[in-house]
C-alpha cells in the first residue's frame, strides 16, 4: 500500500472525527457541545489573549520543572538499579507495582506536603514520570550484552571510554523510550494536578470552563493540549527512531 493512500486514509479518519463531533453537537445541544467550526474560530481568536498565554505558560513551566525532576531522579534510580544486580532484583517489583497504582489517590498527600501552589503540581507530575524513566533505564542497562564489556576490555578501553563509547550508545535508545513515556505521563500528572483545587494552568481552565458552561473554551483547551502532546510525542519518537538506527 502506498504511503500517499495511507496518509489519505488517516486524514479521512480525522475528518470522520470532526463529523462525529458535529453529530455530537447536534445531539447534545449548543451549551453542552459547541459545533466544530465556531470552536475553531474561538480557538484562533483566543489563542493569543493574555489569559490563555498566562495559563499556557504556567502549565509549560510546571511541566518543565516536573520533567527536570522526573528525568533526574528517574535516571539516577534507573542507573543504580540497572548496574547493581541485587538492588535491581529487590527494587524492580516495588517500582512495577508502584507504576500500576492509581497515583491520583496520592495527590492529597502531595498537596499536604508541597502546598497548593506550583510546587504541588510539579511534584505530582514528577511522581508520575519518575517510574517509567527509572524502569526503562534499568532495563536498558541490564540489556547491554556482556560481550560488549569483554570487547571493550579486549580493545583496552579505559573505564571512562567504556562508558562513553560502548555503554552509553548501547543503552541510549531504550533510555530515550523511557524519557518519551516519562514525558507523556508527567504531562498527564501536571494536568490532573491542575484539574483539582487549582486556579492556574490549562487543566484548571477546563474545569473553570465546565463550571461557567463554556463549551468552546473546553474544546479549545483540549485541542491545544492534544496537538501539543501529539507533536511532542512525534518529535521524541522521531529522535528515538534515529537513535535506534545507529
Amino acid at each position: 500500500m502506498s504511503t500517499a493512500r495511507r496518509t489519505a486514509d488517516t486524514l479521512l479518519l480525522l475528518a470522520g472525527l470532526v463529523v462525529f463531533w458535529e453529530i455530537l453537537h447536534r445531539a447534545a445541544g449548543e451549551t453542552a457541545m459547541p459545533a466544530p467550526l465556531p470552536t475553531f474560530a474561538y480557538l484562533l481568536h483566543n489563542l493569543t489573549t493574555p489569559r490563555f498565554i498566562a495559563n499556557l505558560t504556567t502549565t509549560g513551566l510546571e511541566l518543565g520543572y516536573a520533567l527536570l525532576l522526573a528525568y533526574g531522579i528517574g535516571l539516577a534510580i534507573g542507573v543504580w538499579l540497572g548496574a547493581h544486580r541485587l538492588s535491581g532484583a529487590v527494587g524492580e517489583p516495588i517500582l512495577v507495582s508502584l507504576y500500576s497504582l492509581p497515583k491520583i489517590t496520592l495527590y492529597p498527600v502531595v498537596l499536604l506536603i508541597f502546598g497548593l501552589g506550583i510546587s504541588g503540581k510539579v511534584a505530582f507530575g514528577a511522581l508520575h514520570g519518575v517510574l517509567p524513566v527509572a524502569l526503562l533505564t534499568m532495563g536498558a542497562i541490564r540489556a547491554i550484552p556482556p560481550v560488549y564489556l569483554r570487547a571493550a576490555r579486549a580493545l583496552q578501553l579505559s573505564p571512562w571510554q567504556t562508558i562513553t563509547i560502548v555503554l552509553l550508545p548501547a543503552a541510549l535508545p531504550e533510555v530515550f523510550t523511557g524519557l518519551r513515556i516519562g514525558f507523556t505521563v508527567t504531562l498527564l500528572g501536571v494536568l490532573l494536578g491542575e484539574m483539582f483545587a487549582s486556579k492556574e494552568g490549562l487543566g484548571a481552565m477546563i474545569i473553570d470552563a465546565l463550571q461557567l458552561v463554556q463549551g468552546e473554551e473546553m474544546m479549545t483547551v483540549a485541542i491545544v493540549l492534544f496537538a501539543f502532546a501529539a507533536l511532542a510525542n512525534g518529535l521524541l519518537f522521531f529522535v528515538e527512531h534515529r537513535l535506534r538506527r545507529v
Binding site: D9, L191, M219, A230
Partner: peptide, 23 residues
C-alpha cells in the same frame, strides 16, 4: 489508517475530555 492514532493515543491526555463528557 488507524495505526497513527493508536501510536499517539496514550501520549495525549484523553482524560482532559472528562469535563466535556460531564457537560
Amino acid at each position: 489508517a488507524l495505526d497513527p492514532f493508536f501510536a499517539t493515543y496514550y501520549a495525549v491526555p484523553v482524560f482532559i475530555f472528562y469535563p466535556v463528557l460531564i457537560a
